[in-house]
């Protein structure tokens, strides 16, 4: 093990940093501050639950292939589960975002938590969009035809070709969910590491401010 004269190994630094910032008691606590008592706190976990269902139903759809759901009743039902999970995912995420905004939840060095949350929102819009492009029905024909102009107009279309079904399908099932998964994981770990933001006026006494 490291002595005072020895330079710390990277692995040691990682372990110590992890233990300091996110010990397992912080990761899986059995109490929360008394102010965590509102229905608004449930929208984060509801968003995660929807994401879990999206991934599960999405995996089911990918095992059966991209055109399965057009011809099979089970396939159509699984597609419906995927579709409604996405609708709820966005509903819950937006309410979560409103809640966190009005709580100014970025206070107390939680800026990165806000940033990862906002990135997850923007990234989810992109991911959902590619999903709409690979439905292989009239809707996806039309969306790809219309959206190409937006992406072409700023040069993104030179590499990101919305009319290319193969490219959109691969991005939708491989690349984008991984990105969303990683951002979400960081977001959740940051929430656990930093704890739930205290009320805006919680420290007025300590700071000698009157309300």
């Amino acid at each position: 093990m490291s002595t005072s004269t020895e330079k710390e190994m990277w692995v040691t630094k990682l372990r110590k940093g992890w233990q300091k910032n996110l010990p397992v008691e912080k990761l899986l606590p059995d109490t929360q501050p008394a102010y965590v008592a509102s229905w608004i706190y449930l929208f984060g976990v509801a968003t995660l639950a929807s994401l879990g269902l999206i991934i599960a139903t999405g995996l089911w759809l990918s095992f059966e292939g991209a055109s399965w759901y057009h011809g099979s009743n089970v396939g159509h039902f699984v597609n419906s589960l995927h579709f409604w999970s996405v609708q709820f995912f966005f509903v819950f995420m937006v309410v979560h975002l409103w809640g966190k905004f009005w709580m100014a939840a970025w206070r107390g060095r939680r800026m990165l938590t806000w940033i990862t949350g906002a990135l997850a929102f923007v990234g989810s819009i992109a991911t959902a969009f590619t999903g709409y492009l690979v439905q292989s029905n009239f809707d996806s024909q039309w969306i790809s035809y219309e959206a190409k102009d937006g992406f072409n107009s700023v040069g993104i279309g030179s590499r990101f070709t919305v009319t290319n079904f193969g490219q959109m399908l691969l991005l939708h099932v491989a690349f984008l969910p991984v990105i969303i998964g990683i951002i979400t994981l960081i977001h959740v770990l940051l929430v656990r590491a930093k704890g739930v933001v205290p009320p805006i006026d919680a420290f007025n006494k300590e700071l000698g401010e009157r309300k």
């Binding site: 899986l28 501050p33 976990v45 205290p198």
Partner: peptide
Amino acid sequence: RAELESAPWGGRTRRYDL
């Protein structure tokens, strides 16, 4: 303020099963 708001909560707590 940032320091107080970022420090681990020292006040009352409640049971919460994540």
